[in-house]
Design a protein around this nucleic acid. Sequence first.
DNA 1: CCTACCGATCGGTAGG
DNA 2: CCTACCGATCGGTAGG
Lengths: 194, 194
Amino acid sequence: MKSKAKISKKENITLEATTLFKRKGYAATSMRDLATTIGVEAATLYSHISSKAEILQKICFDMAWEFFNAVEAIDSSEHSATEKLQKLIASHVGVVTKHTDSSAVFLHEWRHLEEPHLTVFLKMRQDYENKFREVITEGIAMGEFVKIDAKFTVLTILSALNHIHEWYKPEGKMTPEQIATHLAEILLKGIISK
Amino acid sequence: MKSKAKISKKENITLEATTLFKRKGYAATSMRDLATTIGVEAATLYSHISSKAEILQKICFDMAWEFFNAVEAIDSSEHSATEKLQKLIASHVGVVTKHTDSSAVFLHEWRHLEEPHLTVFLKMRQDYENKFREVITEGIAMGEFVKIDAKFTVLTILSALNHIHEWYKPEGKMTPEQIATHLAEILLKGIISK
DNA sequence: CCTACCGATCGGTAGG
DNA sequence: CCTACCGATCGGTAGG
């Protein structure tokens, strides 16, 4: 019997590719770079994966699924818009901090996806943004939030949340929960003290 | 006498390169792509510029200068931390909205700079971030701002400001001034209505 | 998992 | 500003 929790060759390729794609970018990472990192010849990679493009697709769509999955149950609850938004923020921060490298690739390299994947990807991203937008719109309608353009607000919030991967270190002093709390604090109440 | 306001060949190359670098990324943009866009053969570009790397350097450092220049006078004034931060935000938004394509390249493609330029670039970016950090630290010390980690706050603010280029259209309904005001509103006071 | 290799394309130069 | 071309490297395949 082979060892149980060991990851497959293909999973390892995806893992190392994620690190390289984050550091050098998809286009500037060659299959020979990747092969050298893993310790095989470039041709050997093709026994496990079918193309460079396929690796990127897997990373981007796996992450899209992670984001959606984490947010699934939230809008069916009956909390206030404020509470929903806090949950959306915590959920998003949870995914980004759990998968920092994949998040970076998801965020910056999706434009190298080939059709028809690119169109599907953009549709998913739009659907995800709409979950935030609905909560913002509801909060404005209910008088919980100030009257600022909903799209503008969503993009501002997501920009702030999406770039955690640039500085977050798992061994750092802030836990993902603290980061989520502080971000929600800033975005909901601002940094001016009362 | 040649026409007055006409931009030089080199300036035009930089301009078209900026558009392509934003859309496809630096690594995925070939000199033949660029030549075709301009309407010459690839070899012709080298009569005006010395290398692909030089174009990226010019874009990144011109933008760094823009950001610094716009922020120059602010911290010597005697306003409150809140007012200073509002000015920093307005200044930054002004640069990003005036140079959307260059901002995107500045923000995403700097990692393809070659040494020693890369080190210089990162130093400049750090110095710029420090201008924000000083104001945040001052605001916390004066009791104007809530006690949240200064570095964390700066990166959150800059993330929100830096991604305006993804959706800003000069012909859109919000002016740069309105964007700056609304962003400052969200970041300083939050979106919860009082 | 490797050796050997493919056609295509890369950034850039020589020479006019 | 072009034609012609350079060596290097790209993603990927054949065959074992």
